[in-house]
Structures are given as structure tokens and as C-alpha cells.
Amino acid sequence: MLAAFVSSPSPDDPLSVLEVGDRPAPEARDGWVVVDVKAASLNHHDLFSLRGVGLPAERMPMTLGCDAAGTDADGNEVLVHAVITGTPGWSGDETLDPKRSLLSELHQGTLAEQVLVPARNVLPKPAELSFAEAACLPTAWLTAYRMLFTKAGLQPGQTVLVQGASGGVATALVALGRAAGYRMWVTGRSEEKRAAALALGADQAFESGARLPERVDAVMETVGKATWSHSVKSLKPGGVIVTSGATTGFDPSAELNRIFFTQLRVEGSTMGTRTELQQLVQLCATTGLRPQIDVELPLADAREGFERMHEGRTNGKIVFTV
């Protein structure tokens, strides 16, 4: 079957090890089902995988991808939850399972014509959502949903700063926050990205690192080292940073003096639960809220999508169709 995969990592030149070609088709086994993929979306996780982050060489070759929507063996339209528990008998929040993994870490991923997943990781796809729209939800949008509604502890009318205006999680945060009645501010490196965020529903957009007109109640962080200091300085006393990624580096100065003196909270957030994904899907189906898709490409042209993400040329989600 056709797939986008990696056979050996390259920390410095990730696109050089991306392969698009033939991979063995999966076979169903007890408790696991095969999904025929109709659409799959790209995430920064896939670029990290090409670099070997969280994916050692001994697990390769590995089909990339966490997100997918498609059909099961009975023809039902479904989407795939990417978080797979690893502890036998685990119950409760699967993101807290110390042995959890995402698709494409221990198990072959979704950027393929078919993917094998645990039966509990398959959810019905509402007819209101296209396959491409549904494929955007399980990673970027689920991450944003958990950050805003589970971790941040906000009330409608409060102000949220989103660092980085154009990525999949950032655009999801703006759309979800706007729908929930938050005042959504964003930062962006270019006028084009800031304008796109405003068109999506952001209340104000600022240059990266700019001094804000007032401090905010919460900052949503996925950028990391390049924006961390600005995030800490932008918060009101008692405010919260919710961090779910660090695309520019994992090791900023913590600025502990500001954190303890102004009593800030730092909340880590990783993906989301199956229940949260169900809630997100229902929210989109009933309200008309939809992911912003930057571009749809055939899976055979996956390299173009990876190049766009690697170069920062995105305004929403990149989706591969099968």
C-alpha cells in the first residue's frame, strides 16, 4: 500500500529521510481493526519523527501520521483517536498512562492507505463533517480543546494569548476560543499570518514579542524557547500558561522569579482523551465549527505538504487524501 514513512532518522535534515512508497498492508487481529484511510492530516509530530525524536531507529521503518478518518470493514465512516494505552487494564485518562503512545511511535501511523488501530480508538464520524475535516480533529484540534477547556480554567470574556498564529493547534485555539466567548489575541511573525488570524476570528494580532496593551489571563504555548519569556511577561498575576509543544526548542530560561512572585501557573497538556475527542466532534457537528484547512494534497504528493510545514508556510491544517 502507498504510505509516507521513515526508515532512518535525520536530526538536521528531516525531509531528506522522508519516503513515499510501498509498505505492507496491515491485517486485523484480536481487539484491533483496519481502517481504510480517506484523509489524514499532518502534524509537527511527524517532522519530529523524521528527526528521530521519540522514534528511535530500531522502530523503523515507521509509517508516519497520527490523524485519520475513513471507513471500517463494515463501511462505517469513522475517525481515529491517536492515543494508545500501553498499560494492561489501564482505566481513566489515557494521556496519563506512563506507557501510552501515539500512532507512529510504537504502532504504524496513518499516512497510508490503511491503518491498524485498537477497536476502542475508532469513533463514529458525523455525516456533517467531511473526511478531511474529521482528520484534522484528533491531534491539533483535540490538543487545543484540552488546553482551553480542561487545563486553562477560564471563563467567557477572559483574554487568551495564542503564541504563533498560523499552525494547526493555533488556528484551532482561535476558533474554539472564539466560539467559547473568550477574547482571543495572537502573535505572528508576518503581516500575512496576523491578517489570517484576524480573519479566523482573533480579536487582535500582534508582532511576535510585541508589548501587549494589557496583560492576559492565559497564554497558549506551542512554540517554546522563542516565545517563552514573552509568554511569562504577558500574564496577569495568577495567570496560567498552558504548554503543549515547543517547536523552537525545549530549554528556555524558566524565569522562576516571575513565576513564583506573580503566582503564575504552568500547565502541561498532551493530546486529549477519547471522551474529549467525542465532545469535540459533537461540538463541531452541532455548531458548524470547522477546522481551517490550508491545503489538501494527494498522499502521493506528501513531500509537498511536509515541505510547507517545515518552512512554516501554513495557515491551518495540511491534509492528505487517499
Rank of each mutant, 00 (worst) to 15 (best):
A127V: 02
G21Q: 00
C284A: 14
G181M: 14
G245N: 04
S244K: 01
R23K: 08
R303T: 12
G86L: 03
V281Q: 12
Y145Q: 03
A119Q: 07
S190Y: 06
T71I: 08
E105C: 07
L264S: 00
W185C: 14
T287V: 09
G188R: 11
G52L: 07
A4Q: 12
A172S: 14
P9I: 00
D97C: 03
V117C: 02
V186C: 14
A40W: 02
V53I: 10
R178S: 15
I84V: 12
E94T: 03
P61Y: 05
M184E: 14
F131T: 11
T275D: 15
S49C: 05
A4I: 12
R100I: 00
E221W: 13
G272Q: 12
L161M: 14
L129G: 03
I84M: 06
L106A: 11
T262V: 09
L142Y: 04
G75D: 10
V53R: 09
G75W: 02
V186I: 15
D36C: 04
L212A: 10
P9S: 09
Q282V: 12
G188M: 12
A210M: 10
A69G: 05
P14V: 01
H230D: 11
M309N: 04
L15K: 04
A3Y: 01
F250V: 05
T270N: 13
R100N: 02
R51V: 10
V33K: 02
R183Y: 13
L256K: 11
R215L: 15
E133P: 02
